[in-house]
Amino acid sequence: MIEVQGLRHCFGRREVLRDLTFSLEKGGFAFLTGPSGAGKSTLLRILHGSLPLQEGRAVAAGHDLVGLRPSKLHQLRRDVAMVFQDFKILPERSVADNVALPLVVRGTPAARIKRRVSSALTALRLTELANRPCAELAGGEQQRVAIARAVVAGPRLMLADEPTGNLDWDLSLRLLDILRQFSAHGTAILMATHNQALVAAAPDARIIRLERAAPDAAPTSDAADDMEEAP
């Protein structure tokens, strides 16, 4: 589901990813860990097509990212869903509308949208909030909306960037359980997290650990995360 070979990525002169190689099979579940600035978000954004592939080779859900044309980006994103650290939900729209968005943009028939949204809301325990505008929700609830939106269309690969960052421990465990269930149904999941306790809670999951690039390439600093988030 993911094939990465010799991946290298720089922001200006600063090297964030160096010679990264790994793979993740269909239905696989892997944690992406490492210190701040190690390039976790950068890797996820490359695999989601938000950052260009600079060097190396990467295939995500069957889409070769080498020379991926902007006009084909939507096809990649229909197979590769992403849960963002800052949720990226539409605050003025309802929970159900937000969750339905990936299906709406695909032109899915209304009856099917209703059915799939309903089951995603049930899985994330959001049914009672379905008609509430997302702006009125707490951070943890918005996080669950973002996850429901990612799973609703049944992606082949899900990338999650710190999805438990706004959740308490119980909710984090429940989310992990939900993601494992989706994984068991064939969706490959790559989840970036700082939370070592959560990693320990899933001992059978793979761990892909990123380290900060060696200092000979360029000076490292705490500003690296900010650079990763730069548009």
């Binding site: 939507h74 994103r77 229909r78 990226k88 539409l90 943009v105 269309a153």
Partner: peptide, 15 residues
């Protein structure tokens, strides 16, 4: 911002 989110969830430019 709304358009950006639509693109992130797989919207084609025509959509």
């Amino acid at each position: 911002e709304e358009f950006e989110i639509m693109r992130l969830v797989g919207a084609a430019e025509s959509v």
